[in-house]
Design a protein around this nucleic acid. Structure first.
Lengths: 278, 278
DNA sequence: TGGTGGGTCCGTAGGGCGTACGGGTCAGTG
DNA sequence: CACTGACCCGTACGCCCTACGGACCCACCA
């Protein structure tokens, strides 16, 4: 069980599955019993509730009241099932609201993605390279649209979307990882800290790590205070958006200095890692 | 095997292991045979070469020419072993050079972290909350030192370090994920794209995703051109640093407006997720 | 109406995994 | 010389994914 990599076999089969080509064919008389969608939904419920580690073909089959091997009629394997789960999950992102300036739009996108990851923490353990499902492409299109027409080159637009998404991912992964550890250890941060602080104090020579000690205790103190836990996320996001702002302002200044120049491709910047992959 | 979460049992035991308390005791006469360090090194070699998924207690024991269960004399379980591997890996970060401005220092830190992750890709699949080993703390201290004295509050310093590290993590994870998929599928991006482009074209209605199509092909074209693959990373990093710069400039302006104010704690910003965790 | 083909379902088995448990082995000590 | 405790490890249990081949049963056709 490779921890997070998906897919194994024929990409053409995967694509057909993602786009639901040749779906129902000729259902049997009685209730449809099984289907790709029912399997994906059941699997997602398990992963949402107990994590990707608890997701097994046996568990999914059991939840559907069906033999394990029956799943393989509809899905080539576990990897492809996870791919399907990911694309299906992205359908939950509502992409309606396009109002406001680009900064507000990006902020809204970041928050929507964060909420989605919180709803489906297992998504942060998957690799989405070459996962070209309908919902993922729609998401990519929606996100790019938020910064279209600002004078950025296409490659810069891709980079910017990746930058924001990357920030959301890493931050949320951190948050959820901490929650998971707290849940599994049965101790929240505060309890854990109080319990093992003496031991740590004996182990760690504060004078050897002066800055870490100072910052560590300040951060610890801040955690004691009552505060909205989303503030940290928003704070960092504004820093990222400030960085984007600098880029947008630069390109904007270039355009007004040379109004004939098209918006496309400033040559000294380079492309992203994968093509439309998020 | 929970895919990426570590530790299971007594945190005190874990800490003792990380800090190598009560290490050698009374070695047997002959060669030391086994030790925590030898186990960690062997396990790291396997994970480096074949990924975290290929790491099993059996494999490690085999590599050391020893019975599987012998490992449990030195290490409580696989989770703790991974914790030890992570902390040991951070020892490879050379933290010597402290020259240059804060921006250059952060750039150097980001690149060093990226190189480390490329050397040890499995690190990106681990959760490091509450992992308080000596090397991780040293790293935290070193990174905070790079932005000490700029007028940022302690909480802001923590956020900033997390921001940069988060950027490095998400970007590198993307890069390495793509490499892994390419390796396992036996097709690089270019081959894959050429092979499945016809199928994709039939599936995807370009007019439905206008921006994604335009940007996707531009990014694809950029990938054809010869360019340094690290440019994308550096480009995004500069955006992040621009964002930090805005913050630093703001605090700097505040300080010169009110020179009596201390550097600490602006109350409307909040702490990070874990205490000294990276 | 009497097949019969194919879609659907699933039992079995093989090869992984982590680790609990209990029994060997042997260096050093009393 | 007997003992003891650290070290080592064989076996076994329960989990995992999935290849393979058989069982079932509906839909269609002759």
């Amino acid at each position: 069980m490779p921890p997070q990599h998906n897919k194994s076999g024929d990409p053409a089969r995967s694509l057909a599955l993602l786009w639901r080509t040749q779906e129902p064919a000729s259902r049997r008389r009685g209730k449809p019993e099984l289907s790709v969608d029912r399997i994906v939904v059941a699997a997602t419920e398990i992963a949402d509730a107990e994590g990707l580690a608890a997701l097994s073909m046996r568990r999914v089959a059991e939840a559907l009241g069906v033999g394990t091997m029956s799943l393989y009629t509809y899905v080539p394997g576990k990897g492809e099932l996870i791919d399907l789960m990911v694309d299906a999950a992205y359908a939950d992102l509502d992409s309606g609201d396009r109002s406001g300036g680009w900064r507000e739009r990006l902020r809204r996108i970041a928050n929507a993605n964060r909420d989605l990851y919180i709803r489906h923490p297992w998504m942060l353990q998957t690799i989405t390279t070459r996962l070209l499902g309908p919902n993922l492409i729609a998401k990519y299109d929606h996100e790019l649209s938020a910064i279209d027409g600002l004078g950025l080159s296409e490659v810069e637009m891709d980079s910017t979307v990746n930058l924001v998404n990357g920030y959301v991912e890493s931050t949320t992964r951190q948050t959820l990882g901490a929650e998971q550890v707290a849940r599994e250890s049965g101790m929240d941060d505060e309890q854990w800290w109080r319990t093992y602080n003496p031991l740590l104090a004996a182990l760690i020579d504060d004078s050897q790590y002066p800055v870490a000690s100072r910052v560590g205790s300040a951060v610890g103190a801040a955690h004691q205070a009552v505060y909205d836990p989303d503030h940290e996320f928003s704070f960092g996001l504004e820093r990222v958006l400030d960085g984007v702002q600098v880029l947008v302002d630069t390109r904007s200044a270039e355009r007004s200095a040379d109004p004939a120049a098209p918006a496309a491709g400033s040559p000294e910047t380079s492309g992203s890692t994968a093509r439309p992959a998020t």
